[in-house]
Design a protein around this nucleic acid. Structure first.
Lengths: 341, 341
DNA sequence: AGTTAGCACTCGTACACGATGAGTGCTAAC
DNA sequence: GTTAGCACTCATCGTGTACGAGTGCTAACT
């Protein structure tokens, strides 16, 4: 499908106007913008409609971009500008403010993306699915309870309190530390299965009775490490768009509650910052929505995803620049935290 | 204001019906219910309207309870039934499921209340504002970073990672532990001010250079301990009610973002499980909403609040029973966790 | 051959009108 | 004090009309 330069300009202008106003755009305004008569534009619009790039809500209305139209715009027409210095600094300021806590960082990222895009922003916390156990620590928190802390190579740090039926002592804590570390440090987190915990306990003979609570806690904390949390912000932003105001928001939120399905959706998006439009997501809940995803990397490998859900008419140049820069920066910060040791 | 028994019955029936349907209720249905003619009911309704307990959206519509009407209903008419055994078990199952983590517990409470009431539920995590420091622990998390964990008498446990410019060792960690514990354990968390941290550092002479990072982390973790987090669930439930579907939800969410204002609102509600209707909250955002609050106690003193925001027409008997039982149970669980040592 | 002016046409929106019906207030009889 | 009856009110819904934004098509123009 080859388009004349002017057709491209017309399409760009229409999409630009529609993104601004959200209303079908007529030939008149575009004519003024491109310096030709409205009749000419109407001819072009008719052609673009025949090509399936534009749609007409009804005979006497202006045109609205179709999904195919947005697709062409995204792939070939739109120019992607990098973020302005100023905006980059603003984002840096927001992201570098927090302390050493991946969850807080991702929440901050999600929140700032929601604010800037006026869409629903999602961030997944770094996944420890393919990470290994970097350190396991034990801390006594009361006479009979203690906390296990697991630090993974993905930069996550999860903790869990467990309780014993006997009084803890420094001696016992040291035993926990030594025995469990011997078994688990430098192993893949994914290897910490119930079966593995079972066999570890069995191998300890009469120590097993002491170790069952901490081992169980270690298992649970490993589960936590592998689970990615979703940081949601800006749900209410979607109410700004008529596309979502009537039940649409509820449907989207239902999708987000089905964590597994949504995680799949995010993992399907590979590599580059990318946009999926409506059907392309193969997700009925996102029929009339646009999903923008960007991966962030920790120490060179994919660790998590940022996503934005909004109406099809997003300000794509701005949104893509924001997403790309934010994902890069998040990755950079997490990688730096990892290296600092 | 004295009401005849029949007027009370009429008011109760109207409120009951309105809570069910959400639509103005006419004299006919009520007449059938009370076994008198609709004309009689109309007379009673006219009186109740004159008393300001009912309202008429327009001349030829049925009646809708006014705020004063709800108030009378809540204070005098409604019978408060305790929760059924079955429901109590269901709630228990949800709350006792989690591990030793106050935040997770409060999230669970908030979530279950939102599910059951189909309203917006809020829970505040236990406040450490009046608590004292029960324990401070230090754990090394990497070569140059460590985590400080503060356990307060309110049952909160907060942690924070800090970084040093020098390599940490077991020896140094023990010094951190000893010095900081000497200064801070058993002190009120609220006493850990920047000034106090300053003077603590100053008093250490040439150790000060070592101690600045952990002291700063202790300060921050004390701030975390005193801050109460809000656990929100069921925001989308409010979209079910026309009262909130048009912008009303956004206004409510704006209120919740102004954390200070909302915290005030919750703290104003004293003692008992209680209901504030619209204006009574003195909060324009809740003009057409109802706010139900219940305190939970840890070791006998108020620690946090559960709240429900929904339309004026809530199923109050059910909601109040849920709130009361949930608050009690949360308190019981947290208190038990505190005692276990 | 591409562009433009002109014009008839389409169709959504806004508004007025009348019919319908739920629900009321009032009065008179029980 | 209660009830039946009746006139009245008013939101809702469907219909009809005027308006206007925007189109597609044709014929003239460059």
């Amino acid at each position: 499908m080859e388009l004349s330069t002017r057709k491209e300009n017309v399409l760009s202008s229409i999409i630009g106007a529609y993104i601004q106003t959200g209303e079908p755009v007529g030939s008149k305004g575009i004519a003024a913008q491109l310096g030709v008569s409205s009749a000419t534009i109407r001819n072009e619009m008719a052609d673009l409609t025949a090509l399936g790039l534009l749609e007409q809500p009804h005979t006497s209305a202006g045109r609205v971009p179709s999904r195919a139209g947005y697709r062409v715009y995204l792939d070939r027409l739109m120019e992607r500008k990098p973020l302005s210095q100023q905006d980059a600094h603003w984002i840096d300021a927001r992201l570098y403010a927090g302390s050493y806590d991946p969850e807080k960082l991702l929440h901050a990222a999600s929140r700032l993306l929601a604010e800037r895009s006026r869409c629903l922003a999602v961030a997944t916390t770094p996944s420890g699915r393919r990470a290994y156990v970097k350190a396991l620590q034990f801390v006594q928190t009361s006479r009979r309870s203690a906390m296990v802390i697991m630090i993974s190579s993905a930069g996550t740090m999860k903790s869990r309190v467990f309780k014993c039926d006997f009084d803890l002592s420094g001696e016992i804590m040291r035993i926990f530390f030594r025995v469990i570390n011997e078994k688990l440090v430098h192993k893949p987190v994914a290897d910490i299965t119930p079966a593995m915990i079972q066999s570890a306990a069995a191998a300890m003979g009469d120590m097993a009775i002491l170790m069952s609570a901490p081992l169980m806690a270690v298992y649970e904390v490993a589960q936590d490490t592998m689970r990615t949390d979703l940081c949601l912000h800006g749900q209410m932003n979607l109410l700004l768009y008529p596309e979502f105001s009537g039940g649409g928001l509820r449907r989207v939120m239902n999708l987000l509650e089905r964590r597994a399905a949504f995680a799949d959706l995010l993992h399907r998006a590979t590599g580059e910052t990318q946009v999926q439009l409506g059907n392309e997501t193969e997700c009925p809940e996102l029929e009339n929505a646009s999903l923008v995803t960007a991966r962030y990397q920790v120490s060179g490998s994919d660790a998590g995803t940022l996503a934005l859900i909004g109406p099809l008419r997003m300000n794509y140049p701005a949104v893509l620049a924001d997403m790309e820069y934010t994902a890069q920066t998040v990755g950079k910060i997490l990688t730096a935290w990892m290296k600092e040791e």
